[in-house]
C-alpha cells in the first residue's frame, strides 16, 4: 500500500494512494460541504459543493471524485469557492419548495445545515414555486418532491446496497425527478422491500417515515376531558 502526501489548506496530510480529496480533507480536519456524497455508496460529483482549487489545474474539481496525488496543493476555501457554494445553495432553495418551518426534517436537514454553513440568509434568485407531487401511496414511507434536491442518494443506496433499484431519475433538466419503479406510485412497486434505506439516505425531508410530518401530529385533546370526567364523575368512558 503506497502513501501520498499532500497539502490541504496548507495542512500537510499523508493518506493511502487512491484516497479521495474529500476523505483526505477529513483526515486533515478540514470540512468540505457536500450534499450528494454519502459514505458507503458511489460518488457522482453532482452537487458541486465540494469543488476545490488545486494548484496547477485551471478547472475546479469535485473533491468527492478526485484522487489525492503526491505533492498536490489543495485549497478548499477561497472567496470564489465560497461564493459559488452559496450560489449553489441559493439555487436549490429557489428551485424547489423548501419551507423549513413545516418540514419533517427541520433542524435535522443537511440542506439547512449547508445553508447555514455557507452563510446563506436569503436567495438572490427568483423562487420558482414549481408544482410538485407528494406520493404517500407506500404504507410506511412518503416522498415529497417539493423538498427533493436530486442528489440521487436514494437511487444509489437502493441500487448499490439494497439491490432493489426501486429508485431512478426520469425527465431532463428542470423536469428531472426521482421516480419509483417505472414512474409508478411508490406503494405499487413490488421491488420495494420497505427497508427504509432511502429514508436514512435522504439529506432533506423529501423521503420520510409516515407519522413524522407536521401535519400528522395528532393532539389528543379529548384525553383531558376524559381525565376530568373520570376524576370527577368516576366514569371511565370516552
Amino acid at each position: 500500500m503506497s502513501v501520498v502526501t499532500l497539502k490541504i489548506n496548507d495542512i500537510d496530510v499523508a493518506v493511502e494512494a487512491g484516497t479521495t480529496l474529500l476523505d483526505a480533507a477529513k483526515e486533515a480536519g478540514v470540512r468540505i460541504p457536500t450534499l450528494c456524497h454519502l459514505d458507503g455508496v458511489s460518488d457522482v460529483g453532482a452537487c458541486r459543493l465540494c469543488l476545490v482549487q488545486i494548484e496547477g489545474i485551471p478547472k475546479l474539481l469535485p473533491a468527492c471524485v478526485t484522487e489525492a496525488t503526491e505533492g498536490m496543493n489543495v485549497t478548499t476555501e477561497t472567496p470564489e469557492l465560497q461564493e459559488y457554494r452559496r450560489m449553489v445553495v441559493e439555487m436549490l432553495f429557489a428551485e424547489g419548495n423548501h419551507v423549513c418551518a413545516v418540514c419533517v426534517a427541520n433542524e435535522h436537514c443537511e440542506l439547512q445545515d449547508v445553508a447555514i454553513e455557507v452563510g446563506m440568509d436569503h436567495t438572490r434568485f427568483t423562487y420558482r414555486f414549481p408544482e410538485r407531487e407528494v406520493d404517500i401511496s407506500h404504507p410506511q414511507f412518503g416522498i415529497d418532491h417539493n423538498r427533493c434536491i436530486l442528489c440521487t442518494r436514494c437511487v444509489r443506496v437502493c441500487d448499490e446496497i439494497e439491490g432493489a433499484h426501486v429508485w431512478d431519475v426520469s425527465g431532463r433538466g428542470p423536469a428531472a425527478k426521482v421516480i419509483t419503479g417505472l414512474n409508478q406510485p411508490w406503494g405499487d412497486v413490488d421491488a420495494c422491500t420497505a427497508c427504509g434505506k432511502c429514508v436514512d439516505a435522504c439529506p432533506t425531508g423529501s423521503i420520510f417515515r409516515k407519522g413524522t410530518t407536521v401535519a400528522e401530529i395528532d393532539r389528543d385533546r379529548g384525553k383531558l376531558d376524559f381525565l376530568v370526567t373520570a376524576r370527577e364523575e368516576k366514569k371511565w368512558t370516552r
Partner: peptide, 18 residues
C-alpha cells in the same frame, strides 16, 4: 440549454433556468 441540460448537476440544471 435549459431544455437540454440533463439535470444532474445543480449549476447547469438550476442556473440555466435562472
Amino acid at each position: 440549454c435549459r431544455g437540454e441540460t440533463c439535470g444532474k448537476c445543480i449549476p447547469c440544471r438550476a442556473g440555466t433556468v435562472q
